[in-house]
């Protein structure tokens, strides 16, 4: 006897994600899920962001890695509210991990919460964490075909970042080709070019400030 169901396999994850989202909204904290390959510069970007926005807004970070607390330690030098999540063999963060880690933060004191996902362009895309936006991050040293090869990330991202622009003269990366792939998959998504190592992150800071204010506005209305 067949029993029809038609229910999302990740329903349990999505239910917890909804609880997270509600908690984030009540605390009026803007939550960014940062997704990118290992080594594309996610932690360095957050370090630079914390440095630039110090004293203006309160930032917290949940950082996921299979092992070690190295990223957590790096970020903790610049940020009071950091929780390192070790996923073991897990290739992504799920809503329950975020729920447990966020319980260790004082959300009411935060304006922005970054979730630095496990370095991976595939699995993190499928898991709703309760974030407001997913941001996809690439770097020129990975090659210009990475956007086209990961269409799901392109489609769910509210913003794309292309890092290590300073390396462009030294690597095989056709910038026009990359832009073309991005436009084909998601014509609406903004794409910002950064060089985190050289402190060139102004477009990202501007975007973040705008989004954060927008979010604060809407959560007050709601």
């Amino acid at each position: 006897m067949k029993v029809p169901v038609v229910e999302n396999v990740l329903k349990l994850n999505d239910e917890i994600a909804r609880l997270n989202r509600r908690a984030f909204q009540e605390a009026k904290v803007f939550v960014v899920d940062l997704i990118g390959s290992p080594g594309c510069g996610k932690t360095a970007l957050l370090e630079a962001t914390l440095e630039h926005l110090r004293g203006t807004i309160e930032i917290g970070v949940l950082v996921g890695d299979p092992a070690t607390s190295r990223d957590g330690q790096r970020l903790a030098r610049r940020c009071a509210q950091v929780v390192q999540i070790n996923t073991g063999n897990g290739c992504h963060l799920d809503a329950n991990q975020i729920r447990q880690a966020a319980a260790r933060l004082d959300l009411n004191r935060l304006d922005i919460l970054f979730i630095e996902n496990v370095g991976n362009l595939i699995c993190p895309v499928s898991f709703d964490l309760g974030q407001h936006v997913k941001v996809g991050m690439f770097s020129v040293s990975e090659g210009d075909d990475k956007a086209a090869k990961h269409p799901h990330l392109l489609l769910v991202s509210s913003l794309l970042l292309l890092n290590k622009m300073d390396l462009l003269p030294h690597v095989n990366f056709d910038l026009e080709h990359f832009h073309q792939d991005v436009r084909c998959l998601n014509a609406a998504v903004p794409l910002l070019e950064l060089s985190v190592k050289h402190g060139q992150i102004e477009p990202w800071l501007n975007w973040l400030t705008c989004q954060g204010q927008l979010q604060q506005g809407t959560s007050r209305v709601a």
């Binding site: 067949k2 029993v3 169901v5 038609v6 999302n8 396999v9 499928s126």
Partner: peptide, 8 residues
């Protein structure tokens, strides 16, 4: 990513 049915 949907569970469509289960058969018992």
């Amino acid at each position: 990513l949907d569970l469509l049915f289960y058969e018992v």
